[in-house]
Design a protein around this nucleic acid. Sequence first.
DNA 1: AATGAATGAGCCTTCATTCAT
DNA 2: GATGAATGAAGGCTCATTCAT
Lengths: 229, 229, 229, 229
Amino acid sequence: MTTNRSDGMETRRSLLDAAATIFAAKGFHDTRIVDICRVSGGANMAAVNYHFGSKEKLYVEAWRHAFERSMEAYPPDGGVLPNAPVEDRLRGQILALFHRIMDPTNLDFDIAHKEMANPTGLLSEIMRRSIDPLRAMLVKVVREFLGTHATEEQVQLCEMSIHAQCFFQLLHRRQRKCTPADSPPPVSPASEVGIDALADHIVRFNLAGLRECRRQCAKQVKCQIKGKE
Amino acid sequence: MTTNRSDGMETRRSLLDAAATIFAAKGFHDTRIVDICRVSGGANMAAVNYHFGSKEKLYVEAWRHAFERSMEAYPPDGGVLPNAPVEDRLRGQILALFHRIMDPTNLDFDIAHKEMANPTGLLSEIMRRSIDPLRAMLVKVVREFLGTHATEEQVQLCEMSIHAQCFFQLLHRRQRKCTPADSPPPVSPASEVGIDALADHIVRFNLAGLRECRRQCAKQVKCQIKGKE
Amino acid sequence: MTTNRSDGMETRRSLLDAAATIFAAKGFHDTRIVDICRVSGGANMAAVNYHFGSKEKLYVEAWRHAFERSMEAYPPDGGVLPNAPVEDRLRGQILALFHRIMDPTNLDFDIAHKEMANPTGLLSEIMRRSIDPLRAMLVKVVREFLGTHATEEQVQLCEMSIHAQCFFQLLHRRQRKCTPADSPPPVSPASEVGIDALADHIVRFNLAGLRECRRQCAKQVKCQIKGKE
Amino acid sequence: MTTNRSDGMETRRSLLDAAATIFAAKGFHDTRIVDICRVSGGANMAAVNYHFGSKEKLYVEAWRHAFERSMEAYPPDGGVLPNAPVEDRLRGQILALFHRIMDPTNLDFDIAHKEMANPTGLLSEIMRRSIDPLRAMLVKVVREFLGTHATEEQVQLCEMSIHAQCFFQLLHRRQRKCTPADSPPPVSPASEVGIDALADHIVRFNLAGLRECRRQCAKQVKCQIKGKE
DNA sequence: AATGAATGAGCCTTCATTCAT
DNA sequence: GATGAATGAAGGCTCATTCAT
């Protein structure tokens, strides 16, 4: 540590960065605050308490920090204008989600994943407030894509399929970079595929699924109409 | 305690069950062996070391135990005969995978998920030896479905999409049952959908994606042929 | 420590003794559990947690322990039979209280005093349940001594005076024995007085006060009667 | 903060007041200097060391501060002239002592009590220099009251009895006001008695004791004279 | 003169493991 | 074979104090 007594924000920031990194890598319980301090550049352990009050509050702040960074880097609409065709907007959102997850400097999803695997309950509220609106955006464009005939259930299911495939990359991404000594098992050889090919596949695969679903919806409606006649 | 001195195997068994349950719920590090003993019916803490040598060895045994149970309950081919049409066999495997994950008495996937989130490295080998053959089976039938024109990369990607959607249910399943007081956030309202509708959707959505992929493959080949002419 | 793994009660007992001694000397917050362990004969710090769960629970148990010992050593009636004259019974209770406080092996009053000076709230209930009955006994015999003319307030005040003088010895007692290096100031030279002379004085002084109070009561009643006539 | 840079004495003063209040309430060890700063109106934690050098020195200053205030408010002779009858002067001193203790704005006795309960040794000298003269005054008038026949021991014992009953009110006083949530147990229902009735009782009770003691002295002397004859 | 930042010693607690019976 | 007792390493937190501005 440079023992810079003048700029508390600097220390705070570096602690936050270090915390996000380690919480993302190990989750809340497996993270030692002494490790955070080391990574942060040699801050004193008590500094965490001084700046954040407790390990738990640091955890929440670290997530907020990571989430804000992530949102700045990848606007959820993928840069597609609101008046673009629905398929383009859908593609935009899928790619935004995908790239946000794939970018190794984005730590919010990693932290969130660890939190889901080993819930501490500390992020419950804040994650809901942050993530739900994002999913709502995706749900909305999926609903528009499927058309008015689609039931709410069908919309939710399709959104789930898209989300699942993007989210799944989290597990693979980590295995590509951090494999230090005691390596976790590579779950799939698909991790060798290039990132663009992967993005391409996900978009195409899901659009196909969605179109099939749309056809299905239309058919159901026809049947119902016939049935009523 | 009601310890039956006559039957050490009984204690061993109940420890294994309890361990699988708690490791599945909390992962390795967050699991306290005193909790395992409590759930196991009041076994002494020292019993774990006595029977298994260490917490780590118990962990490995617990996974093996859970995996074997899971495989017995859900044969990976879904009960579809090897000479059935390829689409039927594919559907069989998808459903087998899906239902194995959805069955709350199956703990192997939960443990595996926790292990991927917070790797201990203890299951690396054994998981590879157990899981890789399963994925190979799915990859094989996907390859057959896509036809000979498909590249290996395309096969892997499609298998990933299928796997992702099934695996994703893990996160939702837990949220449906265990929401004790300090609840993690419901990631998606799709958790309200019935299990059969869910299975149906997954099969249909993925078959659509696969067929699209198959068409793509054929087209690519034609182009290549044309290009060569 | 004799590392006697066979007899947990032995360790528990010695911890309890040591805890009572040190809590009595320093109060809850100033007591280091490592000191308790040292005094207890070298027990491991974790042993406190093993046997009692926490420092706080040890504190409560230590008080209970000390109180029970104290009650066994000094029955509150001072050994005077219930059919003895009221003055004898009163003298018996005063002397019992006095000697209980003066006996340096009795630690309950010391702990209670520290608790009153720096309340932790941990002994609230248990002290009330233990001490209130004792005071009630003293109040009862004071009431009997003062006669039916005494108001409840007068009874309470007299009991307070008696109690105060006995209790005050706590402060002096400690100053007689423990004056290690950093000595607290001797509040009064009365500490030089022998214990029997002290007991004698207290009994006589208070009986005089009580008799005066009794006369007062009688006079008041007469006045009231006259006034009504 | 609204710190007035212009007036360091202001801060010093408010720190002293706050310190006296909290040291009186919690004693030395249980007092956090951050709490003192908070109560003091938001002073910086470092201000304590800046103005006083250390927590310990602040402690000593706080006691001196409180003691001086207390002496100004309650002159120890109770306002009775030196040429008044001895009983009046005795009554004056008892009431002065009693009211000094009962006044909740006087903190010196509270601090002294805490110091006696958990001695730090920091106030040894200063308390002796401050308090001993006071007790000497009381002892002197008691000696005069008892007459020349009284032994020094009897004088000391009577002074102790008086002192004890006044001092005992400390314990009750606190319980009347500060009972915040986690309340210490009410030691006696006598705490319900009004302050004037209390003062009245103490004076009367002790005068009775003293007179009895005086009679005793006279008798002893007679016996001794007879014995010598 | 005064303060925000930083520190390190000390404490309680947790927990897997080992020991002696 | 099995268990109650005991252990020690490690972690997070508190808090008075020191530093640099």
